[in-house]
Design a protein around this nucleic acid. Structure first.
Ligand SMILES: [Mn+2]
Ligand SMILES: [Mn+2]
Ligand SMILES: [Zn+2]
Ligand SMILES: [Zn+2]
Lengths: 134, 134
DNA sequence: TTGATTTTGCAAATGATTTGCATTTGAAAA
DNA sequence: TTTTCAAATGCAAATCATTTGCAAAATCAA
């Protein structure tokens, strides 16, 4: 069970903010701002898209949320950091999270080769899922 | 020295197309449509942005070019496939290409674990570059 | 050279995201 | 609790990268 996320110090505890975080915690894969909007509408929580975007920006800045783009989509997706590495099926668009991303093992190598202090990474892998490989 | 790219079979040999490919071949890192536009303007090659976007779309579809997004930027970047994995400095935005991406070694593992036939991947690594670590 | 087809340029449309501003709300202080 | 004020929200309008319609120009095979 994922640990409940806390709204960062210095930000107010609004019901919109909490609702957005809640949707992100319960999401299986990275989702769009509109996904959040619709999910909340289902739960009869009325919120404006701009509030969602403003909160997502804040959450990204604070490192609680990671933004990414998926090939052939024109909207950003947002997820908690543990869901930032994923496989995407080129046929049906299905997204599958990569747990224990093997890339972690290469942080040291990258630091040595390029001199960067690595702070994060995001891996997007494309392929054909079992269902689509007819 | 990179092998000269060929315009795919079935597409016409236009000077705009060749110019775009040329810019992409000579680019060190992924660049935006506007970067291409400006680079060509420097060389006094007049071309419209929509032509650039249309050609980039075609080149991506044909697999000659890879599109990606960089954190905190609102424009897509395009590059030849050998430049699709890179490090980005969070301070200054510097981009450094990762050659021999270690992720390649994990295609087999991913296939076994998730059943996907892997067709491609894109790795974005964030960090602080040596110059910015003052 | 001709003619069918593709490609281009331009201007207008699109649509996700951002922003201005008046209003509401959270929470610290009284 | 009530007061107080900055932070946050909602709405509408603006932004701006990208896409699209269409008429004109360019490619290329016959
Ligand atoms: Mn769009
Ligand atoms: Mn924008
Ligand atoms: Zn699939
Ligand atoms: Zn730097």
């Amino acid at each position: 069970m994922p640990e409940k996320l806390k709204i960062p110090e210095g930000y107010r505890q609004t019901k919109q903010r909490k609702a957005i975080l809640d949707v992100l915690e319960n999401a299986e894969i990275p989702i769009t701002a509109e996904d959040i909007y619709l999910k909340l509408k289902e739960k009869c929580i009325d919120i404006s898209l701009s509030t969602i975007y403003r909160n997502l920006e804040m959450l990204c800045k604070e490192g609680l949320v990671v933004k990414s783009y998926v090939m052939n989509e024109d909207k950003a997706r947002f997820a908690l950091p543990d869901k930032k590495n994923y496989l995407i099926c080129e046929k049906c668009g299905k997204i599958v999270i990569i747990d224990n991303c093997p890339f972690d093992k290469f942080k040291e190598e990258l630091k040595e080769v390029h001199g960067f202090d690595i702070t994060g990474h995001s891996v997007e892998v494309y392929g054909i899922c079992p269902d689509c490989r007819s």
